[in-house]
Amino acid sequence: MTSATTPVVHTAGERRRFGSVVWHVGALAILAVVLYPVIWVVGASFKPSKDIIASLELLPTEPVWANFSGLADGISGISISSFFWNSLMYAVLAVAGVVLSSSLTAYAFAKIRFVGRNLLFTLMIGTLLLPYHVLLIPQYVLFRNLELTDTLVPLVAGKFLATEAFFVFLMVQFMRGLPRELDEAAKLDGCGHFRTYWSIVLPLSRPAIITSAIFTFINAWNDFMGPLIYLNTPEKYTVSLGLMMFRDQEGISNYGSMIAMSLVALIPVIAFFMAFQRYLIDGMATSGLKG
């Protein structure tokens, strides 16, 4: 509290406060732009179905609940919750598959020296470049021959077989960044690769695993093409397919309920993201950063 130090503290504090104001103004400005479309969608979900297409207003003039309350009746005799359940099953299985298979593969790439590793790694990275359309038809024929269409198997098989190269890559990079002393110590203790993987590397790779889980969940939840091609029974449809049932090219489309349902469909994704997003940065931290 001596008067001599006061002016110094004062100017530094002021500068910091000024910086803070600028920072918040900037962040808020970006926030406004980023959230405007989201608010529009929320607003639209309270507009009468007729007014949604080509409506210019951000918010409804007279909010209606009909779009949401209509969801309770289901669509075409199918309850909306069944779409959500199907999507959830798909997303959860996808996450489980990606986490298990990608971490196993990544462990091999990062921690085991075996013949042909570099070649396989190159092949794996190469699959990142493939547009998935090129594989769609041959894969469909395969699953049909196995009589597995109209099940979740074709949708999640690839996840359990580590075909999502990006996540394998992410985990490889992360595992390489782990202190080598740990798994060498494990080896000295007589741990085999599986023990090392399961008890040491896997728990330590949590950020990368959760990051992969987040992306997998979002991708599976939003996937349209896969369910469109493989699922036939409407009761097995995911949310993304269910949404299309509100559309009617020859009659009256129910855009109100469509937009309301797409909004409700956002909730699980947001919840999942919010729950785990704090790991996202750490999970990304080592991906591609080191040579």
Binding site: M89, V92, L93, A96, G97, V99, L100, E147, L148, D150, T151, L152, V153, V156, F160, S199, I200, L202, P203, L204, R206, K236
Partner: peptide, 26 residues
Amino acid sequence: NVERRTILKAAGATAATLGLAATTGC
């Protein structure tokens, strides 16, 4: 570590059960 391990084990077990459930739906 310990805490992580248990969580992941639990996750693994759930995944296995769900995986089995998925194949019965043909």
